[in-house]
Amino acid sequence: MMTLKVNGREHQVGADPDTPLLYVLRDDLKLNAAKFGCGLGQCGSCAVIVDGKAVLSCITPMVLLEGKQVTTLEGLGSVSEPAPIQRAFIEEQAAQCGYCIPGMMMRAQALLLKNSKPTDAEIRAALEQHLCRCGTHMRILRAVRRAARLMETTDASSTANRSAQ
């Protein structure tokens, strides 16, 4: 048994220490956001935040997480109280199938935590190891820029309908 801190709560987890975090999150803690995409650290779908940095949970064994703070997309906000990054992705309608999006959002959140005003090049560089197959890239970039703006302002305006373009 080891103690795993996820989204501010401590969990006693019985998984072997070599088990990658992804399976503990999905199987033991019943969290959906981190996705299995490749299991090889090649696509980014499984990204979560550990101690403020984005890591790929499919190749992060439990042994590395003793005493660390894991944050998943569920820990940022909810449908009723979305975090700025979630609001930004909803407002930009930045998803098609959406499978890669949670990983993208965690990477973006980690970037914005250390750099509140990233340039476009910095956003692209941060997302470079994340793959999207639907071609939602333009919206993802817009959503990250919007999240940066939202995080700056305290104004929490609602997720109103976007008007037609």
């Binding site: 220490p17 070599d18 088990t19 990658p20 299991g39 090889l40 190749i59 992060t60 064994p61 439990m62 042994v63 590395l64």
Partner: peptide, 10 residues
């Protein structure tokens, strides 16, 4: 343990 969880799969 790290090797098994993080490296061996490749």
């Amino acid at each position: 343990t790290i090797y098994v969880g993080a490296c061996a799969s490749c």
